[in-house]
Design a protein around this nucleic acid. Structure first.
Lengths: 194, 194
DNA sequence: CGCGACGTTGATTTGCCTCAACGATTGTGG
DNA sequence: CCACAATCGTTGAGGCAAATCAACGTCGCG
C-alpha cells in the first residue's frame, strides 16, 4: 500500500516508532493521476510535497520559444515539488506532469511545520534527503560542463537503466539538455561502434 | 566578531535563545586561511561544514584535461563543504580554495548530530538553507540549458555585482561554464553595444 | 627591469542546433 | 479490420555558438 512505501522510505533515513508512523499517517493524503495530468502547473502555487509511490513524472519549464526543458524525471521513491514555490508559497516556475498513471502521497504546506514539531525526525529526514539532492544537483552541473552529450547519455543510461526504458527518447534528450534529433544521432553512433 | 555573524545568519531562519546560542558556540571553531590555501582538497574527506565570515572561496573540480570547473563561488554568509563527502565521509570530488584571505566558522562532522539533538533548531535551519540551495541549483541547471553564455554572464553580474568585482575573470568564466577567451569576447561585445 | 598572472584578439574547428523530410508504431473511429 | 492520424524516432544539409590554439598586451610586483 502507498503509505507503507513512504514509511519504509523514511525509515531508510530515520527510525520511526509505531506511534510516529501513525501520527504521520494522519497528516498525509493519497492522490492518483492519469498519464498526462499535471500535479503542478507553472504559475500555480505548489502546496504539496509529494512522494511518488507508483508511476512517473517529469518536472520541466517551457522557455520563450515554447521548448520544454526537463529538470527532473521522477519514478517510485522520488520526491516531487517546486521547492522554491513550496517554501515561499509563490507561483511556480516549473510544471510537474505525469508520464504514466501515477500515485502519490503528499504533505500539505499548511501542516508540514506542525508535523515537523510533532515528529522532529521528519525534519531530520528531509534535511538528509535535501543534502543528497543538493549534492546530486551540483554533480549534474559539473557533468553538464565537463562531459559531451554522448557521455552524459551513457552516464544517464547506466545510472537509471529502468527510467530509460519507461520514458520516450525526446524526454531523455530534454533531460540531458540536447535535442531529440541529436540524441538520435548519438544512439546510432553508439550502435555502430559494436 | 566571526561567531556573531554566524548566529545572526542562523537567526534569519530560526530564533535561537541565548542559551542555544551559547551551546552552539561550544561546538564551533574558527579558522583562518590565506589566499591560495585549500579548505578542502579533492580526495580528502570533508570533515567540516563551514560558514564564511570573511573573504571568499571557490569550489571546483579538475577534469581529465587538467581544466578547472567552478561549481560555486562563496563570499561572506555562504556555506562551504563538499556535501557528498561530508555526509558519507568519503573522499571529496571537489576542491575548496581561498581566493582571498578568508575566515570561517565550522561545525565538525563528529559532533554535528549531537548539536542537532541539543539544538533541534539547527536542524531546521539546515533543512531550510538546503531547500534554498537545492532550488537555486535546479534553476542554475535550467539557466545553463536555456540561456546563451552572454545572458548567463549578464544574469550573474546582476545577481552578484559584488562577487564580480572581487574575482578574476577566468574564474567567472569557469563558473559560467565557458572559456576565459569567450568571456573576454562577450565583454567586448557588450562594451560595443553602448 | 623582467617575470608571472591575467586578459585580449583573431583564425580555425567542432559539438550541437535548426529545419525539413521521411519512417515506424500505435491507437482510434468507421 | 482497415484507414489514417498522432506520436515518436531517424536521417541529412546547413548554420551557429562556443571551444581550441596561438600570439600578443598589460599590469603589479619581487
Amino acid at each position: 500500500m502507498a503509505l507503507n512505501s513512504l514509511l519504509a522510505y523514511i525509515n531508510n533515513y530515520v527510525s520511526l516508532t509505531e506511534e510516529e508512523e501513525r501520527l504521520l499517517e494522519t497528516y498525509v493524503t493519497k492522490r492518483t493521476y492519469l498519464k498526462g495530468q499535471y500535479i503542478l502547473q507553472q504559475g500555480d502555487i505548489c502546496r504539496h510535497s509529494s512522494f511518488i509511490t507508483k508511476g512517473c513524472s517529469k518536472m520541466f519549464v517551457v522557455d520563450a520559444d515554447g521548448q520544454e526543458h526537463i529538470i527532473m524525471l521522477a519514478v517510485e521513491g522520488w520526491w516531487n515539488s517546486d521547492i522554491a514555490s513550496f517554501i515561499n508559497q509563490k507561483p511556480a516556475d516549473f510544471n510537474i506532469q505525469c508520464i504514466e498513471d501515477t500515485e502519490i502521497v503528499q504533505f500539505h504546506y499548511d501542516t508540514i511545520e506542525t508535523v515537523y514539531t510533532l515528529v522532529p525526525k521528519l525534519e531530520k529526514f528531509f534535511r538528509k534527503i535535501l543534502e543528497r539532492g543538493l549534492a546530486a544537483s551540483q554533480k549534474r552541473i559539473i557533468r553538464n560542463f565537463t562531459m559531451t552529450a554522448k557521455d552524459r547519455y551513457l552516464y544517464f543510461k547506466a545510472s537509471y537503466p529502468d527510467i530509460d526504458q519507461r520514458i520516450p527518447q525526446y524526454m531523455v534528450a530534454s533531460y540531458l539538455g540536447i535535442t531529440k534529433e541529436f540524441l538520435s544521432k548519438i544512439k546510432s553512433q553508439i550502435a555502430q561502434e559494436r
